[in-house]
């Protein structure tokens, strides 16, 4: 817990716009404004050793009219492997444009592509945002949005 807190403090003191959401043993979540996220990501990768992308998730906060995208990043630095940084940003639901972080973590490519099709988030700078899992002819709402209702329900 202390160590995760120390890592979080490094981020928040270096980038004052970021906010520490929570810390747990070996986990920390930091949210950043969309304009800063790339700098924070680069800082986390180069100075803090979070170099191993684990997955990218999204959350549809429909009541707050926001879409959240969360990057879960692990580390391969010896002694720090168990730690996972969750780096998140929120964008308005009606204009969900974020910038891609492929330049920081190359492995994020397919995860971002998936988040794009599932939430309708637009990753600017992403080389290929065609459908990865959904059928080619999908023309409904992105399925993981809260206002999309599965046809069986």
């Amino acid at each position: 817990m202390d160590r995760a807190k120390a890592i979080a403090d490094k981020i928040t003191s270096k980038h004052p716009g970021t906010k520490l959401e929570w810390v747990k043993p070996r986990r920390l979540k930091v949210s950043a404004p969309a304009s800063m996220i790339k700098d924070v990501a680069l800082f986390a990768r180069d100075s803090l050793g979070f170099d191993h992308i684990s997955t990218v998730s999204g959350v549809d906060w429909i009541a707050k009219n926001a879409l959240e995208v969360v990057y879960f990043v692990g580390s391969t630095v010896p002694g720090q492997e168990g730690f996972v940084l969750a780096l998140s940003e929120r964008v308005p639901r009606d204009n969900p444009v974020v910038s891609t972080l492929i330049g920081v973590w190359r492995g994020a490519e397919y995860h971002e592509r998936e988040t794009h099709e599932m939430f309708g988030l637009n990753f600017q700078g992403h080389p290929d945002q065609s459908h990865l899992f959904l059928p080619e002819d999908w023309n409904d709402l992105p399925p993981l949005r809260k206002d999309y209702v599965s046809p069986g329900r």
Binding site: D140, S150, P151, G152, R153
Partner: peptide
């Protein structure tokens, strides 16, 4: 019949 995935958006019943 679609089995467990009866209410999935992407599965044929």
């Amino acid at each position: 019949t679609g089995g467990l995935y009866f209410d999935s958006y992407n599965v044929l019943r």
